[in-house]
Amino acid sequence: MSTRYAFLMDMDKCIGCRGCGMACKNFNQLAPDMVWRQVYPLDERIYPHRDRAFLSLACNHCDDPACLAACPAGSYTKRPDGIVVHHQETCIGCTNCIRSCPYGAPRFNKVEKHAEKCSLCHERLDAGLTPACVQACPTGALTLIDLDTFDNANAVQYPAGYPAMPRLNPSTRFILPRMPRVLRG
């Protein structure tokens, strides 16, 4: 039985609190200005209420990762469970992964002069825990799924506001946000 870990991001439940991103900084001890997970508000052309629906994105742990393909130093590996791991120690800071990832997952650490990105907290997964961001999410909007068994007809791979990259086949899945009936005074 194979496993392919992925994030399920339920935009209908997400309240844009950024707890996921800060939990990641807290557990992974990121540099003060570094984030591995960012929360992007949906543009009004996609969701009509500004700053009220969000994409929470870290690494999408693609099937065929652009970062891994671009990395000249072999600093990226893909685990059998689908997690794309970046090894900071061998990174030469060429930023080619940063240029290549369509989702902006790897980011440059200006002080240590290397790229870094979401590890899907594989150290936690290997200890039977959930990733820090998933543990933090107060509404259950962010969960860990196994794509090999995941079956949710409502989930989409490419919501509006997220570039479609079929060749990379990103693993993150999304549930789209609904809207309330609005009566204005």
């Binding site: 309240i15 209420h49 009220r52 629906a53 946000p177 309330p180 609005v182 009566l183 204005r184 005074g185």
Partner: peptide, 20 residues
């Protein structure tokens, strides 16, 4: 949700009233 502002909570409601 009843609020003068379309809050984040309002966005998650079934119905929102923007009260004066």
């Amino acid at each position: 949700v009843i609020d003068p502002i379309f809050t984040q909570t309002a966005a998650k409601a079934d119905e929102f009233w923007q009260v004066r």
